[in-house]
Simulated scan of single mutants.
Amino acid sequence: MSVHQFQPDLPAPSNTVGPITWAKKHLFSSIFNSLMTIVLAFIVINSLWAVLNWAFLNADWVGTTRDACSREGACWVFISVRFEQFMFGFYPEAELWRAKLFFGLLAVFVALLAYEHTPKKFIIWLVFVNIFPFFATGLLYGGILGLEVVDTHLWGGLLITLVIAIVGIVVSLPIGVMLALGRRSEMPIIRSICTLYIEIWRGVPLITVLFMASVMLPLFLSHGSELDKLLRALIGVVMFSAAYMAEVVRGGLQAIPKGQYEAADALGLSYWKKITFIIMPQALKITIPSIVNTFIGLFKDTSLVLIIGMFDVLGIGQAANTDPEWLGFSTESYVFVALVFWVFCFSMSRYSIFLEDKLNTGHKR
């Protein structure tokens, strides 16, 4: 009796796989779909060609004056001449090495924390959160170790954008977590205070908060005392962002099954051990997309500090557009600013997707 031999699987028919088959099925499945595909492809190709032609093929890249912009495309010479101002604002040229060192150290910390296999990442995170802010403050502001004092009204560009965004993100998250826990507390006073705080701050726009921090807050201080304008803006941004972060975290806490709380209680864990080791890690994992979305919104909202006289990267762009020697190149300015914001926001978005995949425990749908 012969044993049946299974033959290897045959490849799928050529008329069922491949890009041509996909196009026939999705783009040219009917006369109407074929016409729409052709029309839309024509519009997209023409639009992309116009952008490519303006931004690269007919653009001017090299030069130091307006006379270098003689072609019909974009004048990136304008951006290159103003590049340091876009990055650092009006920071003194002789002290720019301090701002550049800050950018470099920040990039190193972000790279080490983002890289999955970095050893002793927790220690690096503690240094970044607890030591680096004080070092960066002393480095940028000066007044120590013989460094010349650079007042914050000279800071600007991407420097001020990153300072406000990083402080707002790092500080608002733990405050938001505590507010979320307080709003779910069984103690009526704590719950009422946290709820009142969240609802008040969520009920006013950020621009109003910045006005209050810049104009009204000094009126409540004792005579002769004055807070730096940047510090006042940071306080307003943190308090505003913490309210939104609290609601994001509260949503994660409510998504945790009741059995997780009961299991932690059955193990005899204290309240803080239950929250620290059982509940909060799960809640934060669930809310990663919402947390990052809040961070992205906060990063873009930093441009509102222009209202109180602080020139972030967008403010520097608008100021550069009023220079009589470079009138007519506002498009290049706004495109460059938009690109800067897009790079940072897209990077945060992709890193959140990486974290979701890394922390996925098989419950994704």
Rank of each mutant, 00 (worst) to 15 (best):
H4I: 09
Q5M: 08
F6E: 13
Q7A: 13
P11G: 07
A12Y: 03
A12G: 02
P13Y: 05
N15C: 05
V17Y: 05
G18K: 09
T21R: 11
K24D: 14
K25D: 14
H26L: 10
F28Q: 06
S30R: 11
F32E: 15
L35M: 13
M36V: 14
M36P: 01
T37W: 11
N46P: 01
W49I: 14
V51T: 10
L57I: 15
G63C: 05
T64D: 11
D67C: 01
C69W: 04
C69M: 04
A74K: 03
A74P: 01
C75R: 04
V77Y: 02
F78I: 00
V81I: 04
Q85P: 00
F88G: 00
P92E: 07
W97V: 05
L101Q: 02
F102K: 02
F103K: 05
L106P: 01
A107W: 08
V108D: 05
T118V: 07
K121M: 06
F122K: 10
N130Q: 06
I131C: 07
I131R: 03
A136W: 05
A136N: 04
A136V: 02
T137Y: 13
L139K: 07
L139F: 11
L145M: 15
L147R: 13
V149S: 09
T152M: 04
H153E: 15
G157K: 02
L162N: 06
A165Y: 05
A165C: 03
I166R: 07
L173F: 09
G176Q: 07
M178F: 10
E186M: 09
Y197H: 07
E199Q: 08
I207C: 01
T208A: 15
M212N: 04
M212H: 03
M212T: 11
S214F: 15
S214N: 15
S214T: 14
V215A: 14
P218H: 10
L219D: 13
S222H: 10
H223A: 13
H223G: 09
E226S: 15
L230R: 03
I235N: 09
V238P: 09
S241F: 02
A242M: 10
A246K: 12
V249A: 10
R250C: 13
L253F: 12
L253D: 12
L253I: 15
I256C: 11
K258C: 06
K258I: 13
Y261K: 08
L267F: 14
L267S: 10
K273Y: 12
K274R: 15
K274A: 10
F277D: 13
M280C: 10
I286P: 00
I291D: 01
T294I: 01
G297E: 07
G297S: 02
D301H: 06
L304W: 03
L304I: 11
V305D: 05
L306R: 06
L306A: 12
I307D: 07
I308H: 10
F311Y: 14
F311I: 03
G315P: 01
Q318F: 03
N321C: 01
D323F: 01
W326S: 01
G328Y: 03
F329R: 04
F329Y: 14
F336A: 02
A338V: 01
L339D: 00
V343Y: 03
V343R: 00
C345Y: 00
C345S: 12
C345W: 00
S347D: 03
S347F: 08
S347W: 07
R350F: 08
F354W: 09
D357G: 11
T361W: 08
T361H: 12
K364Y: 12
R365V: 09
